[in-house]
Simulated assay, not measured.
Amino acid sequence: MITSWYGWPLDRVLVLFLGLLYLMIFVQVTLFHYRQNFRHWSMWIPVIATPIDGLALVTYSVARTDWLVTILTLLLSLSFFAGLFGSYMHFRGVGARVGGYETRNFLVGPPLMLPGMITGSSLLGLIALYWS
């Protein structure tokens, strides 16, 4: 049982907040992809992966077990590569809009930074898992 924050190492606090970050990203990604009617099958990847990653990270911050480290390593590695793939798809999506790679299409098209946030958060999570 969690009694207080006192005595928690930095990596444990980081893992907890990364888990909460993943849950917030889940809400945003779901709204954006729902707005686009899930036109491509790959839009389901972050909608399914981010809540699983988030719940696993929050669980690990409370109950630190070796088997959960193995599962998180696999999940975060997959999310890292999914974020890279998402960055490619979003960049391609901007170019598919009328006018191609114009400034206005970068403003109203698929957000280029959101898949990068998943990539960066996954990498940060892997670093935090193997910090000590």
Rank of each mutant, 00 (worst) to 15 (best):
T3Y: 12
S4D: 13
S4G: 12
W5M: 14
W5T: 10
Y6P: 02
Y6T: 13
Y6C: 08
G7E: 05
G7K: 02
W8V: 05
W8C: 03
P9Q: 07
P9G: 07
P9V: 06
D11W: 11
V15A: 06
V15I: 15
F17C: 10
F17T: 01
L18V: 06
G19Q: 04
L20I: 14
L20T: 07
L21Q: 06
Y22G: 02
L23D: 04
L23S: 03
L23K: 05
M24I: 12
V27Q: 07
V27A: 09
V29A: 14
T30P: 02
L31M: 11
L31Q: 05
L31V: 10
F32M: 12
H33G: 01
H33E: 10
R35P: 00
F38S: 05
H40N: 14
H40M: 14
W44L: 12
I45F: 14
T50H: 11
T50A: 12
D53K: 08
G54S: 05
G54W: 02
G54L: 06
L55W: 06
T59Y: 15
Y60C: 02
S61D: 02
V62N: 08
R64D: 07
R64M: 13
R64P: 05
R64V: 12
T65G: 10
D66H: 11
W67V: 09
L68E: 06
L68H: 09
V69W: 06
V69H: 02
V69T: 11
T70K: 08
T70R: 07
I71F: 11
L75T: 00
L76N: 10
S77E: 00
L78Q: 03
S79H: 06
A82M: 06
F85T: 09
S87D: 05
Y88R: 04
H90D: 07
H90N: 13
H90S: 07
F91K: 11
R92C: 05
V94N: 12
A96N: 15
R97T: 09
R97C: 13
V98R: 15
G99C: 10
G99Q: 05
G100F: 06
Y101V: 09
Y101D: 08
T103Q: 15
R104G: 09
F106G: 04
L107I: 15
P110I: 03
L112C: 04
M113K: 09
L114D: 07
P115E: 02
M117S: 08
G120I: 07
S121D: 05
S121F: 06
S122K: 00
S122W: 00
L124E: 00
L126S: 00
L126I: 02
L129C: 04
L129Y: 00
Y130I: 01
Y130Q: 08
W131K: 01
W131Y: 14
S132V: 10
S132L: 13
S132W: 10
